[in-house]
């Protein structure tokens, strides 16, 4: 009490030797360089765009410097010209269309089997014992090495491409879906059981519903695998599609067209990924 009174009535000279108060930091936003720090959306987009355009400018500079033969590295403008030429030739949409169709067919065929199988592997130990070790083994079989077999079995038709995409995605997908199912909290299952749920009700009403968002994520990730194997399939045995166009371009040394093909696949992948992310938010508004 007396201490405080003394400090309050201290003479002005005592106050003068106190250090200047630190200036308020005018930027009150969270610092950027903190492990697991925060970043607002605007700055995130700014950084992302900077990296994208930075790469583009770097590419143009290297190409324009003329030290590298344009046959090996065409500049961005050459690539855009190649895209326009492809479009004008009338093949662009047909090539994109057939490739998307193949990916979707192979991917859907995988998903239709992998989702129920993965769900049952995650639900019942006997099903797990029956299928999981086989899937773990099959997952390491190199899909690309199946090309000769696939050609032998299915010839050069559409089924060859679709089955190669299936081989490349199915086994991974089954294991990831079973993992998604295994991660459903035990308390959710046991609560249903004490309320009188049968096994099939637990699978249908709890496991599947609870794992759905994770399953959609798994499908989004494995869709990327499907595109990889599409290109493999089309490089080897096709007369249409983006992968085929890339191979044709290589034969005629149209490096710029190879670039266009690669980027188109990248852009299609990016768009589907964004669509699926939106769908995720729309379908599962209850997620924390």
């Amino acid at each position: 009490m007396t201490e405080r009174a003394k400090t309050a009535s201290a003479p002005p000279t005592a106050r003068a030797i106190q250090p200047e108060p630190r200036p308020e930091p005018h930027d009150l936003r969270a610092p950027l360089w903190v492990v697991r720090g925060r970043m607002d959306r605007g700055r995130y987009i700014a950084f992302a765009l900077a990296s994208f355009f930075g790469l583009l400018i770097l590419w143009e500079l290297v190409a324009a410097a003329g030290t590298i033969n344009p046959l090996f590295l065409p500049g961005p403008l050459a690539v855009v010209r190649a895209l326009i030429a492809w479009w004008q030739s009338g093949d662009l949409w047909a090539d994109i269309g057939i490739s998307v169709w193949r990916v979707m067919a192979g991917f859907a065929l995988s998903a239709v089997i992998a989702v129920p199988l993965g769900l049952y592997i995650g639900a019942y130990q006997p099903v797990r014992a029956l299928f999981e070790p086989i899937m773990e083994f099959a997952r390491y079989l190199p899909a690309v090495a199946f090309v000769p077999l696939v050609l032998l079995w299915f010839g050069l038709g559409e089924s060859a491409k679709i089955s190669l995409i299936w081989i490349g995605t199915f086994f991974q997908m089954v294991l990831m879906i079973s993992e998604d199912t295994s991660r459903v909290p035990m308390a959710q299952i046991e609560a249903a059981r004490t309320l009188g749920a049968s096994n099939s009700e637990i699978v249908r009403l709890v496991l599947f519903r609870s794992a759905m968002p994770a399953m959609l994520d798994t499908l989004r990730i494995t869709l990327g695998f499907a595109w990889t194997y599409l290109v493999v399939a089309e490089l080897i045995a096709a007369n249409s599609g983006l992968g085929f166009a890339i191979l044709q371009a290589q034969r005629y040394l149209q490096t710029d067209k190879i670039f266009v093909g690669i980027m188109l696949i990248g852009i299609i992948g990016l768009i589907t990924d964004q669509v699926l992310r939106r769908l995720h938010k729309f379908l599962f508004p209850w997620l924390p």
Binding site: A187, Q188, T194, L195, G196, S210, M212, W286, L287
Partner: peptide
């Protein structure tokens, strides 16, 4: 075995977040 004559309240994570 379990039965609906004996229901249980758990410590956590037992609610269905989608309901």
């Amino acid at each position: 075995g379990p039965g609906r004559d004996r229901t249980m309240v758990f410590q956590d994570y037992s609610l269905y977040p989608w309901l």
